[in-house]
Design a binder for these strands. Structure first.
Lengths: 206, 206
DNA sequence: TGGTTTTGGTACCGATCGGTAACATCGCAG
DNA sequence: CTGCGATGTTACCGATCGGTACCAAAACCA
């Protein structure tokens, strides 16, 4: 079942200058393939050959497929965290702009037609509860919610936790819904967010 | 990877009176196993033996595993639709109570500790875009959103579509978040829903 | 240069996957 | 009782899975 695997369409004859070391290539390819096809649907052999190497080299850098999956999750979590540090450095001491930039970022994600849901959430669905990657996922989601709380607190909203929960759930719901074909509600997410943030009560300026 | 499969704990020596026909048993067991362990993680052999039959009989009723998966999705969609007809028959001509009952129903789902996310959403994550079960899933999600719109319209809310989108995304987000370990926002979902519905503007009574 | 580490290639392993053939057995309607 | 369809049992198929042994070819560093 689920035969057709979406491979990478890159040209194998591309300039070979500046090719990253195997481990990086493998991990990059794994991120792409796991996200687009699902973890169970992608075999290690396919990953290796898509990374223009072979299975042996893969197993020299990752001690098992599960290990590769954990690294995959870590990579995704790190990428997600990077967004927040970029937000902080791009708009220091300006929570308003930080918030607006975050909403723009959400818009980019939701309107991307490559969107197949949150990769970490998808991984959680595919992985058994005891899988080591689940811890990575859960910690990341907690961090994300905390980032939202801090952002709303910095923007002087009266109920930062409540607002964070609401926005968090809306965003997560939108991403999973896109994958379920319910693109309608998801496309209206950004409008909802901007509206919600405009109307939510805030403390007066000091 | 993902070795430990959660089987059914039923007693094999249970009274054999009134045992349903194989097809029903297989489908019921498949629903349970697919939901708890994921579709890819459960083999047909395991399903057959958990249904106290064998692989041959399974393949006499379902022409392939994919076919069984489609039937699984149909079963889930039908169960979901049943909720809405029950809502309608339990509270005819009373949208208020219907709405309250639906929120109660959401509360039951979200607070259940067997919750592992929406089974149909999980299936969508595991299945390739072209899989025949995806159509079943997408149609169901559209119906669900439409049911919400109608409910809010019946309850005389001023912006039924907008409210439906919001509630839809919150609910979907809560279910997927539970699976990602973010039980926090999900537990506060019901409070958020009641609050949202209480504050949303409505048309005056005629 | 020489020696060492890293890769590539290939062939292979046992296990499991989805799916089938062949045949024994059961239950039930006539 | 007879006959027939639905079920149970077993063994098997080819394919693929994750993972490894072995050795040759590079690549790197001294």
């Amino acid at each position: 079942m689920n035969k057709t695997i979406v491979r990478d369409g890159r040209n194998p004859e591309a300039s070979d200058a500046l090719v990253p070391p195997p481990r990086e290539r493998i991990l990059a390819v794994a991120c792409d393939l796991f996200y687009r096809n699902g973890i169970h649907a992608v075999g290690v052999e396919l990953i290796a050959e898509a990374a223009r190497t072979n299975k042996m080299t893969l197993y020299r850098h990752f001690k098992s497929k599960d290990d590769l999956v954990v690294e995959y999750a870590r990579q995704l979590a790190a990428a997600g965290d990077t967004v927040w540090v970029k937000l902080a450095t791009d708009h220091p001491d300006n929570p308003e702009k930080r918030l607006a930039a975050w909403v723009d970022h959400v818009e980019d994600i939701v309107t991307s037609n490559a969107e197949r849901g949150c990769a970490l959430a998808n991984a959680a669905v595919e992985l058994q509860p005891g899988h080591p990657a689940r811890a990575v996922i859960e910690e990341y989601k907690h961090r994300k919610r905390d980032h939202l709380v801090k952002l709303f607190r910095a923007a002087r909203y009266r109920e930062p936790e409540r607002l964070a929960d609401e926005v968090f759930l809306l965003f997560e719901g939108a991403r999973i819904s896109i994958q379920c074909g319910s693109r309608g509600p998801a496309t209206r997410l950004v409008r909802m967010l901007r509206d919600l943030l405009a109307k939510a009560p805030r403390k007066a300026r000091s």
